[in-house]
Amino acid sequence: MPETPATRPGLAIFLLLSMVVLGVFPLDVVLPSFPALADYFQRTPGDIALSISLFAIGISLSQLLIGPLSDRIGRKSLLLAGMALSIVGAAGCVLSTDYGGFLLFRCLQAVGCGCFVLSQALIQDLFTGKQRDHLRILMVTASGLAISLSPLAGTVLQDAFDWPGSFWVFIALGLTVWVIAWRHLRDNPARNPSSHSLLRAYALVCRNPTFISYWLISAIAFACHFSFIVMSPLLFLEQLHLSSYTFSLILLVYGAAYVGGGVLAHGLSKRISANRQIIAGLLLIVLAGGLMGLLHRHAGLTVFNVLLPMMVCTMGITIARPIATSRAMDVFPDLAGTASSAGSALIFICGGVVSAWVNLSPASLPVTLATTFMALGLIALGLILATCRRLREQRPA
């Protein structure tokens, strides 16, 4: 089993945060290199975009297998194998001379990156109580900052090293983290190595309404962030006609909301209950939707009218999502890998469906985002209130 925080807290936190960063690199940092990739492989930008879609499919399928397997055979071996596979895939992408080979190695990288779903299971193994909550707040904050910094980082790497730059950085980071995990992470024996098959384990966790409710709340919060990130190039580059550099700076300002939200979430976790913290965060998401709608109606589309509501929304996301994830993971401590994979699948599905709806809606983007945030926030509030009532009814008299 990995060493406890009492013995090596710094390495444990560094490993988990590194997994967050490595999870962002293959998807977001490569986006500014689309034109260069299209030119290098003599394909259309749409063909290069296909590699992102295949990557998302590959990582999703891989996660569904890795989580339950880690409950049966332990975390370390799967983490090391997955990271090694992702490194080989990234190296293959750099060395590919044709588009077919690039797609093949991109899929291989995606399958390996599925191991990063184990970050939630490792938190469950390594930490307890408030430590878990605080670390999950830190990870959500780090994830938001990494995503916000990605366009600027991708642009810098593209200018300095052409399209292979992001892949070489991924390889270097991956090798560093692999060595740290290999040297300092001891594998944990599976707690119940033969008690549940893969399908039975998923059936067990997915039948629990409390588990599903908390993960859906986390997924809804993520979907609000994801839909904005996906649509932000359309808002700022196409409709407001900003430069790529200005767009990158705007996302840096947006990322500051993750820091503020993380600080606020940390403070709230010491003063109010988990469920009240979730409610507070969700109310901010609803407020952000209303604010965006009002600003757009009275002042039109401007950077301020989009950025201010999104910063409010992001603070709500950072307050609600980590604690909802912690409460979900606490339901099945002996099946942390399966629980982590099931929750990750919900997050991918919710993020994809919501962003597709926002993209296909006939209404203007600010109006669609505003109504989506309000609707999702209210749905999540209904879920948490129903969960609170169910938990009260389950308590012994």
Rank of each mutant, 00 (worst) to 15 (best):
D133Q: 07
A223C: 11
L234T: 13
G337N: 11
L346T: 14
V263T: 05
G316P: 02
V306N: 01
N359I: 09
T338C: 03
F170C: 00
V94H: 02
R106K: 13
F170Q: 01
C350K: 06
A223L: 10
G101C: 06
L145V: 01
S86A: 09
G101L: 06
C93P: 01
V306Q: 01
L15Q: 02
W182I: 05
F348K: 05
I349C: 05
L64K: 08
N208P: 03
P35I: 06
I57Y: 04
A380N: 02
L135M: 12
I279N: 03
S33I: 15
M311V: 12
F55H: 10
L235S: 07
V354L: 07
R297H: 14
P322R: 04
G382A: 04
D330R: 11
L291F: 14
L50H: 11
Q131N: 08
V331Q: 14
S150P: 05
R390G: 03
L37A: 02
L157S: 14
A90V: 03
S18E: 05
L242G: 13
L365T: 15
D71H: 11
L199G: 06
F167W: 03
H184F: 15
P151Y: 10
G67D: 02
L65N: 07
A190V: 09
I147S: 06
A6Q: 12
K130T: 14
R276C: 11
D162V: 12
G261P: 08
A370G: 05
A203D: 14
M329E: 06
L294H: 10
G82A: 08
C206A: 12
I285R: 02
T141Y: 01
V24C: 09
A219N: 12
T44A: 10
L287P: 04
L235W: 09
A38Q: 09
I73P: 00
I48R: 00
R106P: 09
A397D: 13
R392Q: 04
D125N: 13
S18K: 05
C115S: 13
L308A: 15
W357R: 01
I217K: 05
S60P: 01
L108Q: 00
F228C: 03
E238G: 09
L85E: 04
Q277W: 00
S33V: 13
C107G: 14
W215G: 02
